[in-house]
């Protein structure tokens, strides 16, 4: 009798949890396949190697930035500055190259400035107790402004080949940018899922006060995620500048929306404590497919913006419905 009583809830509890979990990830994969099949059947240009390459390249930029955004969102924060930081770090790397700074140094300049801007957000969020939404919104404007100030609004171009290869070159049959992105996803996936730091990120997002009382260094954890996000935006800036062989102050406008959408579609919760790098990868690919499909189908650019917004709205709606269900 006693054993029957304990075994029933066990099966139910365990079964339900794993089904909803599987359902979440399954939904993403099914969505991804459905969009691919639809595009393959209706658009002859979709399944060409040139098109797939372009999806991968476009997804590299969103992907690298979305990885940083995943860390931030899992802590329950948000970083709206990443698009502007991509532009600012791109032009800073460009200025360095035009001043004949060696290529590796220019790359470090780009990534380092990104990390600094993340550090600024981290300082405001942890020491000044400011809201990440507002701080990163301010940095969005400041970084964009700086990008115009340092370039006088001009486009920088003609970078050394070694630099351009990062964004546009190939290593064997594979685009270098896609390989770098893959590497970023692998490392980030291991860090978030398998390290002490990753566990701290989840705990801070799951219940900040409980994490603090359990002895987790909440401030340090928050600071690191914003620095990661900034540094990866810097890497994104370098890759974008290399791919285009130019750096523009108006680059990557609205990129943060694509990145946040990818993270949320990938199953992360804007309330914190939930999300994964694998989910974000799937989310990035779905965003890449949608953007590519809209281009192939010759949808008016005005509608593209609208549809991207609607996709984000839908993803956040699902997140907030889930949250409500979890609470009740």
């Amino acid at each position: 009798m006693a054993s029957a009583q304990t075994s029933t809830p066990q099966r139910r509890g365990f079964g339900l949890a794993s089904i909803t979990r599987a359902l979440n990830e399954l939904t993403i994969v099914v969505g991804f396949l459905a969009i691919s099949i639809y595009l393959a059947l209706t658009t002859p240009a979709f399944l060409t190697s040139a098109n797939i390459l372009s999806i991968l390249l476009a997804s590299s930029l969103i992907g690298i930035v979305a990885v940083g955004e995943t860390f931030v969102i899992v802590t329950g924060g948000i970083d709206l500055s990443v698009g502007s930081v991509v532009a600012f770090t791109g032009v800073m790397a460009g200025l360095a190259l035009n001043a004949h700074v060696p290529v590796p140094m220019a790359i470090i300049v780009g990534i380092g400035i990104g990390a600094l801007s993340g550090g600024f957000i981290a300082f405001a969020v942890t020491f000044l107790n400011m809201s990440p939404f507002i701080v990163s919104l301010a940095v969005l404007a400041m970084a964009r402004g700086l990008a115009f100030i340092v370039t006088n609004g001009n486009t920088l171009f003609s970078f050394p080949d070694a630099f351009d290869n990062i964004g546009g070159g190939n290593l064997g049959p594979f685009p270098v940018a896609a390989l770098i992105t893959l590497g970023v996803f692998l490392v980030a996936g291991l860090v978030l899922a398998r390290t002490v730091f990753g566990a701290e990120v989840y705990a801070v997002g799951g219940n900040r006060e409980a994490a603090r009382l359990a002895g987790i260094p909440v401030g340090r954890t928050l600071a690191i995620v914003y620095i990661i996000s900034g540094a990866l935006a810097g890497l994104g800036g370098v890759i974008l500048a290399g791919r285009l062989d130019s750096a523009q102050p108006i680059a990557a406008v609205g990129l943060e929306l694509n990145a946040i959408a990818a993270v949320v579609i990938g199953g992360a919760s804007l309330f914190g404590g939930k999300g994964s790098i694998l989910g974000t990868l799937l989310g990035v690919l779905i965003i890449g497919l949608i953007n590519n499909g809209l281009t192939l189908k010759n949808v008016q650019p005005f509608w593209v913006q609208f549809i991207q917004g609607a996709v984000i709205f839908g993803a956040v709606l699902i997140d907030s419905l889930n949250q409500k269900r979890r609470k009740s």
């Binding site: 989840y202 705990a203 799951g206 219940n207 409980a210 994490a211 009382l213």
Partner: peptide, 13 residues
């Protein structure tokens, strides 16, 4: 709930 536990996380975490 508010300060002791991360409610949606497993016992082991």
């Amino acid at each position: 709930k508010g300060e002791g536990l991360v409610m949606p996380f497993p016992i082991r975490s």
